[in-house]
Design a protein around this nucleic acid. Structure first.
Lengths: 183, 183, 183, 183
DNA sequence: AATGAATGAGGCTTCATTCAT
DNA sequence: AATGAATGAAGCCTCATTCAT
């Protein structure tokens, strides 16, 4: 007895994202994704060709979401760095586990390319925001390549600190601010 | 047809370490560890009771090794921070990816405890070295808890930068030095 | 390429029962159960959580079946002992070897409990029937505990004689009748 | 470093017998037999070609042993049936688990033959003793074929009763006496 | 379009057996 | 003659994927 479900694609994506975030790629089964979504396993395959694609698409969506969220900082006259870092911290930590996979090497070459592109997208967003901040403050900017490294470090550190010191959000953010100022 | 093999334990450990580093715990099969070591699957189980123990022991060995290497810095009169960070960078990057797993949460509680202890050991070493450096320079020190975070961040960043920007050792180290000075 | 199969649970149960009967628990592999049923190994696990459960359920079903078959003797006015023993002999020997395992000790405690209960059920049925027979004949009855031993001996002997002297049904039954009269 | 051990063959046999008796064929590993004997696994194979042969030889020895033990009853002027049954009961129950395997069907045809012969040997011994008893008492004897069945039943019942009602040795023996008198 | 039973490759682990020492 | 490390087939079980309904 088929269930009529609207926006099934986004429901699957949501459930999958939650699960991948908590457990990582290997530890999530298609069965549990289906259960969490409230559909049958077979139905998943009407929306995503296979587990790998599901995973990629979930990340893709997340990154797009980041873009949307953070683009508004580019429009602002004044940038409050602390507010921005705090926002970044909170958003990224909703997606913890997904990113674990993104920083891993063992994805096969096909998905590697996609993941790499997605990662660049995210970095680009943050870089632009920080650059704009420096410009407005009249501060000296590092060279593009150096900034890339710094921004990447900043994002990774958000993940790492929250994971290791999960109860210390404020202190983590305070450390991240110092890192941001290195850029 | 059995063949006697020398230093098999360390050969297994080496292969396993490489594989866990590249692919993470779940994506490494006992079969591939055996193949990479050049032995039969069953032989693995003469040395390690199961996959979990293999993983734990591999990390344990790595950390012990770090201790041995870095303890000598504690004896020195003068500490060259750059030299130390460079050394740290190179040593840790021989061990890259094992630590992926160490930063994960979803290891079961038994191994979690061991991993946590091992991590503390390593952090303690580096913390002591950096503290001693500040003392000799007469610089102000952060509180213990803050230092812990900073040192942890430093170590993680070594891994992360080398993985992401593998050809840029000098620039990575230069960034890490800036991070070390935040401590 | 999946194919839908009817009554699969009972097909598996039948095949498993045959195999456990002939070879005993350890000597039966899930692979051979699957082959004999004409399905894939994985399919077994859609019906039974694991090998142990499969075994228990197979016995459970068999005993339930006995109950159904022999309960009718309790309703009868007149009991022909020979007819009853003959019927018992034939029914039990459709199920021969599963009971091998039931008489073993080294089943783990969890299944032991279930097996013990099932055994009691069957013994109780036969005991009641024999008691009723004696009552109607006005014969002296043994004490409950002694009867329990005798009935158990009778049932086991059915299995054993048929296995050892399979072509001598009538003579086996004749011997069993003598045993029944000891009760 | 080789150990010089006398009567190693009989030591192995003893250990194996104990283990097979307690756990049955499948549940005993060659490693544990070696450990229990206090030798290396490889050494086992200097004495027995494989696990199957070890098992067969252990039974063979046991049966020979029974022969030796019970032959003395054939020499006696007077046979105390109760004493004989009691002795039989106690001896057989030292070997419980080994006999489990003997009554199983799933041994392959090669060993089946040997096991069958060994079983006949044991039955023959007991049969002769019981016959002699009847002769001395001037009692009527059953035909050879019927006696064979009865003796077999008697032996099996020893195993079964002790297993099912282990704390009730005297009552078990008392029931067995009744069975012996059916012969 | 949804379902979920069936599939079977592949993962972890055990253990009888071999053979260099 | 004894040793025990090495071997690899085989066992139990999981899970991504397929397809008849």
């Amino acid at each position: 007895m088929p269930k009529i479900i609207n926006n099934l694609r986004s429901k699957i994506s949501g459930a999958a994202y939650q699960l991948f975030s908590e457990k990582g790629y290997s530890a999530v089964s298609m069965k549990i994704v289906a259960e969490e979504t409230g559909i049958a396993v077979g139905t998943l395959y009407n929306y995503y060709a296979n587990k790998e694609e599901l995973f990629i698409k979930v990340i893709e969506e997340k990154i797009k979401n980041y873009k949307k969220i953070f683009d508004k900082y580019l429009q602002k006259e004044e940038l409050d760095l602390e507010m921005f870092i705090t926002h970044l911290y909170d958003e990224i930590n909703k997606s913890k586990g997904v990113i674990d996979e993104v920083i891993k090497k063992n994805i096969n070459s096909k998905e590697e390319k996609i993941v790499t592109r997605l990662r660049s997208d995210l970095l680009e967003i943050v870089d632009q925001i920080l650059i704009q901040f420096k410009e407005k403050k009249g501060l000296e900017k590092e060279a593009k390549a150096e900034r890339k490294r710094s921004v990447y470090a900043l994002l990774m550190m958000i993940l790492i600190l929250d994971r290791r010191f999960p109860g210390e959000r404020e202190k983590n953010i305070s450390y991240l601010l110092k890192m941001a100022n290195l850029i």
